[in-house]
Simulated scan of single mutants.
Amino acid sequence: MTTAQQPAPAPRVWREPAGIAPRGTLVLLAGRGESAAIYQRFGTRLAADAYRVVAVPATTGHAEAAAADALATALADQETPRPLVLVGVDTGAPRALRLARRHAGAVDGVVLAGLPTRAPAEPAAGTEEEALAARTACPNHRLVLSREMALAGPADAERPPADTTPLGLPLLALHGGADRISPPAEALPRYRELGATSVVTVRDGRHDILNDVTHRSVAATLVLFLERLRLGAELPPLVEDATRADA
């Protein structure tokens, strides 16, 4: 049976706690070679804040169709909590952008994390430890990557987004300040070309910015974006630093 004939792995869903009204839905498109289980920590945390998370794995030959199917399922379900936000991680980011453009009237916002800036290349020489170090500084996430990447299969060959015209939707960009896989100097201009509402860099952050050592601060930044989005596409401010106010 060829790869294209094999059934695609099912998305993984983390739901809001029982008895708590859901506050929105995130359809997360995983990055190169990632299984949905890699986002267990992320999904659990966002679900605890009452945001439903649907993580779509990035299996070669299925990633594009699986992403489209997950979004179509969410859009078809009248019970899907709003706002509905696409979260594209690494090579999932170009897929999220394509889906957002295709369904601009139905998707409420987009989050991009670790947007790829270079075409796929042959793996660089080096140890597995060096490859993991480029992904994350978090020891727990390194263990998850070592296990789940082997189970997920080969990485997909997604390329950087060809269309960088403004997206026209609320867009949060999250990027590691020390990302060697997608250098900030290359990624940040692309986020701005896409019309990002907010571009956030994480000091010393590496490529897997949702799961790096700063995952708590990144999740808090994302939740604040979602809470503002619930108030409207213009993202009205929720919190302000009073120490900066004029005396």
Rank of each mutant, 00 (worst) to 15 (best):
G33P: 01
T214E: 15
H207T: 07
P11T: 13
G109R: 06
A242S: 12
T243D: 08
V56I: 05
D163M: 00
A113V: 06
A63H: 08
E129M: 11
R41W: 01
R95M: 14
R203N: 12
R15T: 15
S146C: 11
S35D: 13
L46A: 12
V223K: 13
P57N: 11
L84K: 04
V200T: 13
E122L: 15
R12H: 10
G31Y: 07
T197V: 01
P161H: 10
I209N: 11
R228K: 09
R147F: 07
P94V: 07
V218N: 13
T73R: 14
L172P: 01
G31S: 09
A72Q: 14
D49Q: 14
P161D: 11
E234L: 08
A155W: 06
A10W: 02
A119H: 11
V54H: 00
P94T: 09
G61E: 02
R190G: 00
A242N: 07
P116S: 05
T201I: 01
L86F: 04
A37D: 12
P183M: 02
A119M: 06
N211S: 14
T164C: 13
Y51G: 07
R206E: 06
G43W: 05
D108H: 11
L229H: 08
D241G: 01
E64D: 14
R12E: 12
D69R: 15
R23P: 05
A245W: 04
A74I: 08
T243F: 06
V202P: 00
E16D: 05
A242W: 08
T164K: 00
A74R: 12
P183F: 02
F42S: 06
V111T: 10
D49T: 06
V200H: 09
I38E: 13
P160D: 01
R135V: 12
